[in-house]
Design a protein around this nucleic acid. Structure first.
Lengths: 117, 117
DNA sequence: TTTATATTTCAGTGATTGCTGAAATAAAGC
DNA sequence: GCTTTATTTCAGCAATCACTGAAATATAAA
């Protein structure tokens, strides 16, 4: 991942509502969530939400697809993994071996282990 | 790490120059680097640098100490670890086991393995 | 004390951010 | 076609951002 991409992803996540949105989409899994569902879950105005979705999308953190009259947004785990790898590499220069690479995968609905605090 | 702290750290790193500054401090190790050294390395005006250092410091990503007439800034690995842990947890909800926690340690000058890409 | 060095503080500026309300667009149902 | 639902686009606004240049502060050297 390029530095500019990392900065874009960081900027996209560096806002309360957007971080909440992304977190919600991660929880929702690969199927994603309709914009309206996110709006009511986080109590955000639909146009405000569009604004934030757009930032996340441009940063490569979410994808969109239309389903009827709903727009379904889903988290792009790949980009999040790239960001984590970038930060890990840039934070552990010289002792890379000490930093286990963090992997980001969609939530498996069948797995019901401990909630991640 | 609280969500608000994570947002603060993300915002602090979500800027080209600040990310470069932090990266330089990480490379410099626990002893840190004088503000002037950072200024000449990144070709930034000293007052601009103070502005950015302040943001990093408020976000808990760097520490400062005075040495003579120099201000020595050093990376706070602990906060970076907290951020990585937060992001990993928030990106891997439900499959936490799949995400090895990333650790961030100061560079050991004696260790000279492969450069982290 | 005077001078030089290192950094910060202050005032000002154009650009960007996050939000609101109104209007526009898109798809579905009648 | 009209109406409803779902989302986006647009205009505008206060707040914040990243930067510059000038002045102030703090330490060290002469």
């Amino acid at each position: 991942m390029e530095t500019s991409d990392a900065v874009a992803a960081l900027a996209a996540l560096a806002q309360d509502n957007r971080l909440d949105i992304f977190r919600l989409l991660v929880q929702a899994g690969p199927d994603g969530l309709a914009a309206g569902r996110v709006a009511e879950a986080l109590e955000l105005a639909p146009n405000t939400l569009t604004f934030h979705f757009d930032r996340l999308r441009v940063a490569g953190l979410v994808t969109v697809r239309r389903d009827g009259r709903s727009m379904i947004y889903a988290a792009r785990y790949e980009t999040m993994n790239g960001l984590l790898a970038f930060l890990t590499a840039n934070c552990c220069q010289g002792v890379a071996a000490a930093c286990a690479p963090a992997a980001c995968k969609p939530a498996k609905p069948t797995r019901k282990k401990e909630g991640v605090s």
